[in-house]
């Protein structure tokens, strides 16, 4: 409820529902002319990092044969991502497991933490999601080229393609490959941003309506509560999608078209 009220207050105060995405500096830092300030976004990146390390470290501190609650969480997340990598990236995906695990946990915690009132969702910023997608894209491409050299180019030629279709399909394949970092980053950013904007708009509606009619204000409140549940699912799902797609791209780079 706190979130509804606090975000709604912002809406009521005549602020845009996009106000929640604004970045403001907490500690001004600059190197030469570049601005490296520690912002609210940076703060939540640090908190997310510490939260993941703390959860896993505390969970695994005893490493007992019969896991407790926290240890179960740590082990479950490990096995969840390990299975994801095994199923989607196939053979040879194992060395990249730590990166994909980090990626999944980082995005998952960022998305989930964003649903807590008064926090900041740094995955709702395109520059952040694009940076992660770009790292995935460049990394996967480099892995593919190092592993297959020139044969990597066959990735853009579907198997059994009639020769006269090559001029048509190769550019399509090429574009669909190059567009990957954009789709990957926009999917996460847009989902986060749309969800949070909708939550603020709906809860703001509930608050401003309650000034006149208390009972009818319950309707947008109920919708907001339902949206909150949906957003929790989206938060998990988007982290999952990002990690799975990374695995699939990795699979392409490792195995090209042959399975």
């Amino acid at each position: 409820m706190g979130l509804f009220i606090s975000k709604a207050h912002a809406a009521e105060a005549g602020e845009s529902p996009l106000h929640q995405f604004e970045i403001h500096s907490l500690i001004d830092i600059s190197a030469g002319s570049t601005n490296l300030s520690f912002t609210n976004s940076s703060l939540w990146m640090v908190i997310v990092t510490l939260a993941i390390i703390l959860l896993l470290a505390v969970g695994m501190r005893r490493g007992s044969m019969v896991p407790g609650r926290l240890q179960s969480i740590a082990e479950l997340s490990y096995e969840f991502v390990a299975n994801m990598v095994r199923d989607n990236a196939g053979d040879g995906g194992k060395p990249y497991f730590p990166f994909i695990f980090t990626l999944f946990m980082f995005i998952l915690f960022a998305n989930m933490q964003g649903l807590i009132p008064k926090t900041f969702t740094f995955t709702s910023h395109i520059i952040v999601t694009f940076a992660m997608a770009a790292v995935v894209f460049i990394g996967v491409t480099v892995i593919g080229i190092v592993k297959h050299r020139f044969r990597f180019l066959t990735l853009f030629v579907p198997a059994g393609l009639p020769i006269f279709l090559v001029p048509l399909l190769v550019p399509i394949e090429l574009i669909s490959y190059i567009i990957r970092p954009i789709t990957l980053s926009v999917r996460l950013f847009a989902n986060m941003m749309a969800g949070h904007t909708l939550l603020v708009v709906l809860s703001g509606f509930a608050v401003s309506l309650s000034g006149f009619f208390v009972l009818p204000a319950l309707a947008p409140l109920a919708v907001t509560a339902a949206m909150y549940g949906l957003e929790t699912i989206v938060a998990f799902l988007q982290a999952y999608v990002f990690a799975v797609l990374t695995c699939l791209y990795l699979h392409d780079a490792l195995h090209l078209h042959d399975h």
């Binding site: 830092i29 940076s42 993941i52 390390i53 695994m60 740590a74 980082f106």
Partner: peptide, 24 residues
């Protein structure tokens, strides 16, 4: 703020990766 976001993302993600990769 782009550079600042990228800078802190690199630091936090990098630290998280190293800690997870080598310790946890």
């Amino acid at each position: 703020t782009f550079v600042s976001q990228l800078f802190w993302l690199a630091i936090t993600f990098g630290v998280l990766y190293l800690v997870l990769r080598y310790a946890i």
